[in-house]
Computed example of a mutant assay.
Amino acid sequence: MTKFFLSLHVLAAIVAIGPVTVAASMFPNVLRQVQADPGAPEPLATLRTLHRICRVYAGVGIAVPVFGFATGQSLGVLGSAWLITSMVLTGIAAAILVGVLLPRQEDALNAVGTAAGPGSVALDERAGARLAMLTGIFNLLWAVVTVLMIVRPGSTTGA
């Protein structure tokens, strides 16, 4: 059963976390393109698509810690420091995604989507830079979790 849960955990991480990290990373650059040329329809459509990918795969991504917890339980390592650290970092990454990145993406979309109309919301020109920084932190957290999952201090694999 451990191999089954581990396989589901790794597949969920690849399928769910990969698209979120890529789409979230692309969002600030496309936002800058939209800000540079607000009338261009293609970058705005791309921006909406990237936000939708982030939103949908954030929901799908809940499978990663669920299968990770099941794997850890079947391996009997739930009390290990490396796993607890990974769970905490995963929680922080999820909080950044759901509590900061997605709302700021939504705000940016609302601002650039209404920029042509009267009474539009002004978007700070540094919004893209702030989103890029926050996305970098989000991605760095996932990189650290990935390394912890591979290295696993105290592992008996000999790797």
Rank of each mutant, 00 (worst) to 15 (best):
T90H: 10
Q105H: 10
L44V: 06
S7W: 13
V22S: 05
V34H: 06
M133H: 12
G59I: 01
L102W: 05
A40C: 04
I96T: 09
Q33V: 05
L78C: 09
R126N: 14
T21S: 05
F138R: 01
V10Y: 10
S7D: 10
A115E: 03
Q35K: 12
L83S: 11
A127L: 00
Q105L: 14
G136Y: 00
L131K: 08
N110D: 02
A70Y: 01
V20D: 04
L6H: 09
M133L: 10
A13V: 13
V98A: 14
K3V: 11
P65A: 09
V30F: 01
V15T: 05
N139W: 00
A81L: 12
D37T: 02
T114P: 08
S25C: 04
H9E: 00
G99T: 15
I137R: 06
G79I: 05
A108T: 10
R130W: 00
A116K: 15
L89P: 01
L134I: 07
P38R: 07
Q35T: 06
V66S: 07
I84K: 12
K3T: 12
A129W: 00
V66C: 08
C54H: 02
A93I: 03
R32E: 15
V88A: 14
Q73V: 15
P41Y: 06
M26L: 15
L101H: 06
T135W: 00
D107Q: 13
I84H: 08
V88C: 08
L123F: 03
I92H: 04
V56G: 06
K3I: 12
S25T: 13
G79H: 10
V88D: 11
V77M: 07
G136P: 15
S120I: 02
A40L: 04
L109I: 10
H51F: 09
F138I: 03
F67E: 00
G119P: 11
P19W: 07
P19H: 06
F27N: 08
E125P: 15
L31S: 10
G119V: 12
